[in-house]
Design a protein around this nucleic acid. Structure first.
Lengths: 332, 332
DNA sequence: TTGTAAGCGTTATCAT
DNA sequence: ATGATAACGCTTACAA
């Protein structure tokens, strides 16, 4: 009930002047400014954002669309986004695609109704260039992609240098004396996992190690099957002295299997993961890994979006974050 | 650009009639209804929610305030909320308190500007009855608390029966032959951890087991310290044959320490955690635990909020979810 | 520097 | 069953 009208009544000024003060316009006298601000404080004035959005076209809300919120990586990113956005007076509205194109387009549709000022999104696995264009063709708000980025330009995006991360991890093993390294890869249809595998192979080549077929084994997500696969591989090739996994989770399997097989870690075999998941400090031995800079990614994506909100001559930026080695006991 | 006006122009009907159709009013002819819906579909009409919110006072947005989004428990809850709310055509806006009263009240203030239709919130640790009342006194939207609930009534709330969960866990150990059980407790200022400890002690008493001081040890969060504490305890009391931890994370420590001490799990010592964290299936042995029903909690809280959105004669409900035993190999 | 008034897209009241 | 019109709270030309 406490609106701009009330302030006008109290101060004896017009709605326009009150509005100008509240929007930091320079076209107001110091006296008017003071009066208005006092009154605003007195009645604890809070603008009706619905009215502001309707009239000005700016809602002060930005949409965030991720595949899954209940996932440490994405929730860390959202954390970074939230930090930056709330500092700048924006609220964030969150939706999930669950990696489904239809849910993704539904979410975007509902975003479009809300007069959002901008959208941050990580594309679903299935999102192709075609569906992307279809969904977003009439979406004229600023857009920034992060992590999972469709192959299209021009675009604003923030990604991690996954290739580099894999190289760092692999070379860390090599520098610590490993010669027979195996990569536990992820679904190769997902670009980030593909790049990690490429980085692994490149690092082997760079260091004159063989890159034959036995070096890679794909993680299926089926617990028992993966366990058997890794076990079998290790029994077939007992000379294996290092594992680089596409994710920290797979390392838990490897740790278990090697313990069963009575293999000393990191004595006989060294292990490094990817993702810097929380439990990495809790395993025995603690897990070396690659940090994905998730919170920074969210922060930068938010910053990029804020930049493009007020810059009229549109320019696009592709930011690439550098991963960081977290060396712990599993590779000592 | 495609608004209600456009539909009126296409169909030759008035704004009022178009609006009525779009809002499922019964006061329209089948013919008009058909024409409007066709036109709406044709121009891919999407209501401007800012205008709807301004005019009707309902934004179709509900606010969710949690201590920390980057936390598996809360992100699962949000998952449940999102599921229910998006089914009902609501968007959710998320804010974090980081367990700080000032951030919490800031978030609530910004919620209030947004004309939200309702708020779901898990109170920060510090939130007292007084600050709660101060923050929410002029907040007249429906409110539902979950998990962390201030001691105030009347109120809508959804919580887990943590006491019962602890009893179930403890009795599971007892039924599987444990006589000397230790509880690794959490910060006793947090109500849920307190209730878990109480449940543990009650279960011991109920089963005629001693409840002396050696039965509990508080988890400090300091990795090295906790490790030493647990190790020392086990060395002092080698008769210990069971551990019930207030969280799954602590179980990783216990597993590591017992492995170092060459103790057979579950042969000599059995372990059960709380939370049903993802990595519980990946440890060796896999971890028995108590499921917190986090997604259900979010779902029910959302449902409760939706109920109170349209029920004029306000009634309040306190829902208590029953935890579930997840028996795996660590207690076999 | 300030005021007047139009208008953002929709809903709701009152006629017809 | 439908239409004309005011109103929601605010911003912003345009006028003064």
């Amino acid at each position: 009930m406490a609106g701009i009208k009330e302030i006008a009544k109290i101060t004896g000024l017009s709605l326009a002047t009150v509005s100008r003060v509240l929007n930091n316009s320079t076209l107001v006298s110091a006296k008017a400014k003071k009066k208005v601000l006092e009154a605003a404080h007195k009645i604890d004035y809070r603008p009706n954002m619905a009215a502001v959005a309707l009239r000005s076209g700016r809602s002060k809300i930005i949409g965030v669309l991720v595949p899954e919120i209940n996932n440490n990586f994405f929730s860390s990113i959202i954390n970074g986004i939230e930090k930056k956005m709330s500092d700048s007076g924006y609220n964030i509205i969150i939706a999930q695609s669950h990696d489904s194109v239809s849910e993704e387009s539904n979410a975007l549709k509902s975003f479009m109704k809300l007069q959002l000022d901008g959208i941050l999104l990580s594309a679903s696995e299935e999102m192709t260039k075609a569906t992307f264009l279809k969904n977003l063709k009439d979406l004229d708000v600023p857009l920034v992609f992060f992590d999972r980025v469709p192959n299209i330009s021009p675009i604003n995006s923030v990604i991690l240098n996954d290739f580099k991360g894999a190289v760092i991890a692999t070379e860390h093993l090599i520098h610590n004396g490993c010669n027979h390294i195996v990569h536990i890869s992820g679904n190769q249809n997902i670009s980030i996992f593909k790049r990690r595998k490429e980085g692994f192979l490149a690092a082997l080549q760079e260091n004159n190690l063989s890159t034959n077929k036995a070096n890679c084994i794909e993680f299926t997500g089926n617990n028992d099957k993966d366990l058997q696969n890794i076990k079998q591989l290790f029994i077939t090739y007992p000379e294996i002295d290092g594992f680089f996994a596409h994710g920290d989770e797979s390392c838990l399997y490897i740790l278990n299997i090697l313990k069963i097989l009575q293999v000393a870690i990191p004595g006989q075999v060294k292990i490094i993961g990817f993702g810097n998941t929380e439990f990495g400090t809790l395993t025995n031995p603690s897990l070396s890994t690659i940090d994905q800079k998730s919170e920074e990614m969210g922060f930068l994506a938010a910053e990029l979006l804020l930049d493009s909100l007020d810059s009229k001559p549109k320019k696009y930026a592709q930011l690439v974050l550098e991963p960081e080695l977290i060396a712990r006991n599993s590779t000592k």
